[in-house]
Amino acid sequence: CHSECLGNCSQPDDPTKCVACRNFYLDGRCVETCPPPYYHFQDWRCVNFSFCQDLHHKCKNSRRQGCHQYVIHNNKCIPECPSGYTMNSSNLLCTPCLGPCPKVCHLLEGEKTIDSVTSAQELRGCTVINGSLIINIRGGNNLAAELEANLGLIEEISGYLKIRRSYALVSLSFFRKLRLIRGETLEIGNYSFYALDNQNLRQLWDWSKHNLTITQGKLFFHYNPKLCLSEIHKMEEVSGTKGRQERNDIALKTNGDQASCENELLKFSYIRTSFDKILLRWEPYWPPDFRDLLGFMLFYKEAPYQNVTEFDGQDACGSNSWTVVDIDPPLRSNDPKSQNHPGWLMRGLKPWTQYAIFVKTLVTFSDERRTYGAKSDIIYVQTDATNPSVPLDPISVSNSSSQIILKWKPPSDPNGNITHYLVFWERQAEDSELFELDYCLKGLKLPSRTWSPPFESEDSQKHNQSEYEDSAGECCSCPKTDSQILKELEESSFRKTFEDYLHNVVFVPRKT
């Protein structure tokens, strides 16, 4: 048989008469490798580009789960590009990614509803959504962080984005990388972005840091009482949809009607710091009717980097990364020049730590249904340095008659930039024990000054392991946590139920 035959053949030295091919099969003959313009397919066939392209389009058009959109890589027609490569849609070739590779997620039936953290986790790592997304989240724990972890990498949506009755959302900033909504599939009414009845939605994105392009379709905003109209108009300008909307697409009466839409800028007039305090004062603000001013709200939190936005980490279910302080308005003076500047002394802060701070007014709604208010920009203030805590785990070892090696770990709280350490030492008198000992005694162990690591005695271990207080009263049991108490109650309830079950099964009433 021919060298490319495997198993047997019907005619000697003829690659077209093989029972099976050793390498690849091409047009009725066995070959060692697939010549151009053919590609290896499933490690035994040679196919042309049209064959591989037909497989790709067949799966793409069917949208069946589990099928493969075949691509070409290293002269092979394979189910998908290997790690580190992405497909070129024009020629199906796998090309190296520039940075992290995109991950295209194809949605069944063309859309997916995100109504819980669990459903959001199914899209973790996706960068391109081939379909439409509907966000409908009523509640949950730590929602802002969970949504950002699972949806934060999405850069492109081919269909539309719909935010509907998501009472738990305060902001859409968890879509931190969303840059493009194509609108290839539109919501009824030709809408590519749809926001309806979101009672706590206050911000779409921080438009000073976020760009969003909507290729096709219109915007729809109705019944978002805490979303200011200025935020919607800003989205029109940034996304390129200005002029597409009709009169009733953006409701003037049901958007922002319960919001404090600040239209003035508060400026800080005085800032002073110490290692654990920050004193702030800002310019006074009074609405047209000074009785509408209820006070100020001061927001602050630790910020290692200057990239904080107002609604980071917030949701309507209680999660809030900001510390909020309510401040009463100052006494009002008739003389504008003698107006008191409101302020606040922030206490209990960490030394040498940068804080993000902003302040906003708290006002009631005027009778004319106009909203007044003022808010400052987010500023960054760093507390002063102070003395560091003591170095940890000092170790001293003498390696000769004239040297001592000293080692330690950095302090747990540096409280500033540590530039150097101060080492103090003092000579001590020799131990009298060394002169009084009889060095001729056998088995004498000389006193040693070398360091030995501390260890816990058996008594201390027994005390720590004991669940009861000892007789001397030195140790006591740790208080039980809520989960331990709940577990004990469940076990007790189970024992009672099981005992009742045994009584009912074992003891049967005697027939009379």
Score class of each variant (00 low, 15 high):
residue 258 Q to S: 14
residue 300 Y to G: 01
residue 260 S to K: 05
residue 243 G to V: 00
residue 352 W to E: 10
residue 363 V to P: 10
residue 121 Q to G: 02
residue 373 G to D: 06
residue 255 N to V: 03
residue 228 C to E: 02
residue 139 G to W: 06
residue 199 Q to H: 04
residue 126 C to L: 00
residue 175 F to M: 06
residue 173 S to C: 09
residue 127 T to Y: 11
residue 377 D to H: 05
residue 237 E to R: 07
residue 391 P to D: 04
residue 226 K to Q: 11
residue 169 L to H: 05
residue 359 V to G: 01
residue 175 F to H: 01
residue 143 L to V: 12
residue 377 D to M: 07
residue 283 E to I: 04
residue 367 D to N: 07
residue 127 T to N: 06
residue 125 G to T: 04
residue 333 S to E: 14
residue 370 R to K: 10
residue 166 S to Q: 13
residue 186 L to A: 07
residue 142 N to L: 11
residue 386 T to A: 07
residue 273 T to Y: 07
residue 323 T to H: 15
residue 131 G to W: 00
residue 358 F to L: 03
residue 171 S to M: 04
residue 347 R to W: 12
residue 109 E to R: 04
residue 258 Q to P: 10
residue 400 S to G: 08
residue 374 A to W: 05
residue 299 F to S: 02
residue 401 S to E: 11
residue 393 D to V: 10
residue 142 N to T: 12
residue 271 I to L: 07
residue 302 E to G: 15
residue 321 S to V: 09
residue 283 E to P: 04
residue 213 T to R: 11
residue 283 E to M: 15
residue 346 M to I: 07
residue 269 S to M: 07
residue 403 Q to G: 15
residue 149 A to R: 06
residue 113 T to P: 06
residue 222 H to S: 05
residue 397 V to Y: 14
residue 338 S to N: 07
residue 114 I to F: 02
residue 202 R to K: 13
residue 118 T to A: 02
residue 349 L to W: 00
residue 134 I to S: 12
residue 351 P to E: 03
residue 389 S to I: 02
residue 318 G to R: 09
residue 246 E to I: 04
residue 353 T to A: 08
residue 118 T to D: 08
residue 158 S to H: 06
residue 265 L to K: 13
residue 257 D to C: 11
residue 391 P to R: 02
residue 195 A to Q: 02
residue 153 L to E: 15
residue 253 K to G: 11
residue 315 D to P: 06
residue 265 L to P: 14
residue 222 H to V: 07
residue 310 E to F: 04
residue 294 L to P: 08
residue 316 A to F: 13
residue 132 S to V: 02
residue 385 A to H: 10
residue 261 C to H: 03
residue 368 E to S: 12
residue 334 N to R: 14
residue 192 S to M: 02
residue 227 L to Q: 02
residue 292 D to M: 08
residue 149 A to I: 05
residue 328 D to S: 05
residue 374 A to R: 03
residue 362 L to G: 04
residue 243 G to Q: 11
residue 326 D to R: 02
residue 312 D to G: 10
residue 113 T to D: 02
residue 299 F to C: 03
residue 370 R to M: 03
residue 139 G to N: 11
residue 235 M to P: 00
residue 147 L to H: 02
residue 242 K to T: 06
residue 344 W to Y: 03
residue 172 L to H: 00
residue 134 I to W: 11
residue 188 I to F: 10
residue 350 K to M: 11
residue 362 L to V: 03
residue 303 A to D: 12
residue 121 Q to K: 12
residue 279 L to S: 07
residue 159 G to V: 02
residue 138 R to V: 12
residue 219 L to V: 06
residue 253 K to C: 09
residue 363 V to F: 06
residue 110 G to K: 05
residue 308 V to K: 07
residue 206 D to I: 04
residue 120 A to C: 12
residue 158 S to F: 10
residue 132 S to T: 14
residue 118 T to N: 15
residue 155 E to F: 08
residue 386 T to Y: 12
residue 356 A to R: 02
residue 241 T to F: 09
residue 195 A to D: 00
residue 293 L to S: 04
residue 228 C to G: 02
residue 371 T to A: 09
residue 365 F to R: 14
residue 231 E to T: 13
residue 302 E to P: 09
residue 169 L to S: 10
residue 306 Q to H: 09
residue 201 L to D: 00
residue 406 L to M: 15
residue 207 W to Q: 03
residue 161 L to C: 05
residue 377 D to F: 03
residue 237 E to Q: 12
residue 105 C to G: 00
residue 153 L to F: 08
residue 301 K to S: 07
residue 198 N to I: 02
residue 207 W to F: 13
residue 147 L to E: 00
residue 177 K to N: 15
residue 353 T to K: 10
residue 339 Q to M: 08
residue 248 N to R: 14
residue 317 C to E: 15
residue 201 L to P: 00
residue 287 P to V: 10
residue 359 V to F: 03
residue 286 W to A: 06
residue 361 T to R: 04
residue 126 C to M: 01
residue 259 A to N: 02
residue 253 K to P: 11
residue 123 L to F: 10
residue 187 E to Y: 03
residue 407 K to R: 09
residue 131 G to F: 01
residue 224 N to V: 01
residue 123 L to S: 01
residue 402 S to V: 15
residue 341 H to Q: 13
residue 114 I to T: 01
residue 321 S to A: 11
residue 322 W to G: 02
residue 291 R to L: 07
residue 249 D to W: 11
residue 151 L to T: 04
residue 261 C to K: 02
residue 194 Y to S: 09
residue 409 K to H: 03
residue 259 A to Y: 04
residue 307 N to Q: 01
residue 103 K to A: 09
residue 151 L to G: 01
residue 265 L to T: 07
residue 396 S to W: 08
residue 267 K to Q: 11
residue 158 S to Q: 08
residue 255 N to Y: 04
residue 274 S to Y: 10
residue 343 G to H: 13
residue 355 Y to R: 00
residue 223 Y to N: 07
residue 311 F to N: 14
residue 249 D to F: 09
residue 262 E to M: 04
residue 257 D to Q: 04
residue 126 C to F: 01
residue 394 P to D: 05
residue 255 N to M: 08
residue 168 A to S: 01
residue 294 L to W: 10
residue 118 T to R: 08
residue 200 N to T: 02
residue 355 Y to F: 12
residue 266 L to P: 00
residue 211 N to I: 14
residue 188 I to M: 02
residue 269 S to K: 07
residue 114 I to R: 00
residue 274 S to C: 07
residue 382 Q to K: 11
residue 104 V to R: 04
residue 315 D to T: 05
residue 361 T to V: 04
residue 125 G to R: 12
residue 381 V to I: 13
residue 375 K to V: 07
residue 378 I to L: 13
residue 106 H to L: 07
residue 172 L to R: 00
residue 220 F to A: 07
residue 116 S to A: 04
residue 410 P to F: 07
residue 126 C to N: 00
residue 176 R to S: 13
residue 344 W to T: 05
residue 399 N to M: 15
residue 303 A to I: 14
residue 304 P to M: 15
residue 322 W to Q: 03
residue 320 N to R: 14
residue 223 Y to D: 06
residue 289 D to K: 03
residue 159 G to K: 01
residue 120 A to I: 06
residue 116 S to F: 06
residue 213 T to N: 05
residue 194 Y to T: 11
residue 211 N to V: 11
residue 260 S to G: 05
residue 138 R to K: 09
residue 128 V to L: 05
residue 150 N to D: 05
residue 339 Q to R: 09
residue 258 Q to D: 08
residue 237 E to C: 15
residue 379 I to M: 14
residue 149 A to L: 07
residue 187 E to D: 15
residue 191 Y to T: 10
residue 384 D to N: 05
residue 345 L to V: 11
residue 281 R to S: 14
residue 241 T to V: 08
residue 201 L to H: 00
residue 162 K to Y: 11
residue 360 K to S: 05
residue 209 K to S: 08
residue 286 W to L: 11
residue 334 N to E: 02
residue 277 K to Q: 15
residue 106 H to V: 12
residue 251 A to V: 09
residue 122 E to A: 15
residue 374 A to S: 05
residue 179 R to G: 11
residue 341 H to S: 13
residue 219 L to W: 09
residue 277 K to Y: 15
residue 281 R to K: 12
residue 289 D to S: 06
residue 293 L to N: 07
residue 307 N to K: 04
residue 321 S to I: 07
residue 283 E to K: 06
residue 246 E to K: 07
residue 112 K to A: 10
residue 316 A to R: 15
residue 393 D to M: 13
residue 179 R to Q: 06
residue 204 L to I: 10
residue 162 K to V: 14
residue 381 V to C: 02
residue 243 G to E: 11
residue 198 N to C: 02
residue 161 L to S: 00
residue 159 G to W: 01
residue 325 V to R: 10
residue 399 N to A: 12
residue 380 Y to G: 01
residue 240 G to Y: 15
residue 322 W to I: 02
residue 307 N to Y: 03
residue 309 T to Q: 12
residue 287 P to D: 05
residue 121 Q to Y: 02
residue 218 K to C: 13
residue 222 H to L: 14
residue 275 F to R: 15
residue 245 Q to T: 11
residue 103 K to I: 14
residue 383 T to Y: 00
residue 135 I to V: 05
residue 312 D to A: 04
residue 177 K to S: 08
residue 201 L to F: 11
residue 235 M to E: 00
residue 369 R to Q: 06
residue 178 L to P: 00
residue 360 K to L: 04
residue 256 G to I: 03
residue 254 T to Q: 15
residue 235 M to I: 12
residue 139 G to C: 08
residue 280 L to E: 00
residue 187 E to I: 11
residue 349 L to A: 05
residue 293 L to W: 06
residue 327 I to N: 01
residue 390 V to T: 13
